[in-house]
Design a protein around this nucleic acid. Structure first.
Lengths: 179, 179
DNA sequence: CATAATGGCCGAATTAAATTCCGTATCAAT
DNA sequence: ATTGATACGGAATTTAATTCGGCCATTATG
């Protein structure tokens, strides 16, 4: 059984599919992870210990990665949000570039397909701090240019939702793909 | 005192600056909000009731917006992440466009400065579902074009961090701005 | 300058919740 | 049919959250 546990860790695959009750549990806990197991159980139709057991399993399997306090950026003096696209010479994922993840202003870092190599989501106190970060980027070998999209207003920002849209409204003029 | 409470709610301003202990508390709770007040207190140098009192205040003031379970996207069948830039004819923030926030695949929605009107962060099961969402966008009046950046790998993705970089490494060739 | 008033803290006590422990039912594989 | 494994519920136990009262420091007030 140790072997199986290791396997789960390595493959980073949930041990088993999340069933509808698991989805409900995730839905509830994404909204508010501070409720008691008694209340959670009531909302999904389980006894407190059963709900507890499910949650433990979801954490063990990695489906629940963490339980975090969601902070208001203004409360920590970070009112400015920006997405920074970075173009690099050659393959961009160098250790030097990765090092910017040490700055707490950098919240996300992805490689993307399209005309850019990397995409950053950064949150700073002001434009001065953003400029500081950009300057830091330009000092990084291989970085040729950046484009920054400064956020004016945020209308929606939420964690990963467990729900999935099963049917997209089919537009009239779309051919049916082969697969 | 009711008036003051209302004031806080309306202005969405923290009642008082977060002091260093508050920052520490936020730092701990962003990493793991499941610890006991006993442990939280120990880590920040307070008794359990004092820590509890601080956390209550942080929640009341809105500094802690929520406590959420962070879900592994793969566990809920959403392995595909993309950022979608939307160009619109005229002012983009129409009710029709805002309505896409009802889809659980849409995690973020911002208006941005730069050559785009809106920026979406979306997470879907596959390219088919992304296409479904894009088709839905093009069916929205005013949308003229979109550009999608599909994420290949995510190297960093974390909630708002309470820490702030106080000193950015000054690049050699940068003039000192007036203010 | 003295003194009330406030806010934040701690220790102890109380209440509530998490967690453990079994016994039981259900389903799958043999 | 029988065994094994899994998930569940109820009751008991342990642990944590929450309340309460008193103390100290800082700030406002006469």
């Amino acid at each position: 059984m140790d072997a199986e546990t290791d396997d789960i860790q390595r493959n980073k695959h949930p041990a088993r599919e999340a069933d509808p009750i698991d989805r409900k549990i995730l839905g509830v806990l994404v909204e508010d992870a501070t409720i008691s197991y008694a209340e959670l159980g009531e909302r999904v139709g389980l006894s407190p210990p059963a709900a507890h057991e499910r949650v433990k399993r979801l954490k063990r399997s990695g489906a629940i990665r963490a339980t975090s306090a969601i902070i208001d950026p203004r409360a920590v003096k970070k009112p400015l949000l920006a997405f920074v696209h970075i173009d690099t010479r050659g393959w961009g994922k160098t250790p030097e570039l990765m090092a910017v993840s040490k700055y707490p202003e950098v919240e996300e870092m992805h490689t993307v397909a399209g005309d850019t190599c990397m995409l950053l989501k950064v949150r700073t106190e002001d434009t001065r701090a953003l400029e500081g970060l950009l300057a830091r980027l330009y000092d990084t070998p291989g970085v040729t240019s950046t484009r920054s999209y400064v956020v004016l207003s945020t209308y929606l920002e939420r964690p990963v939702q467990p729900e999935i849209t099963s049917e997209w409204p089919a537009p009239k003029h779309m051919a049916t793909p082969m697969y």
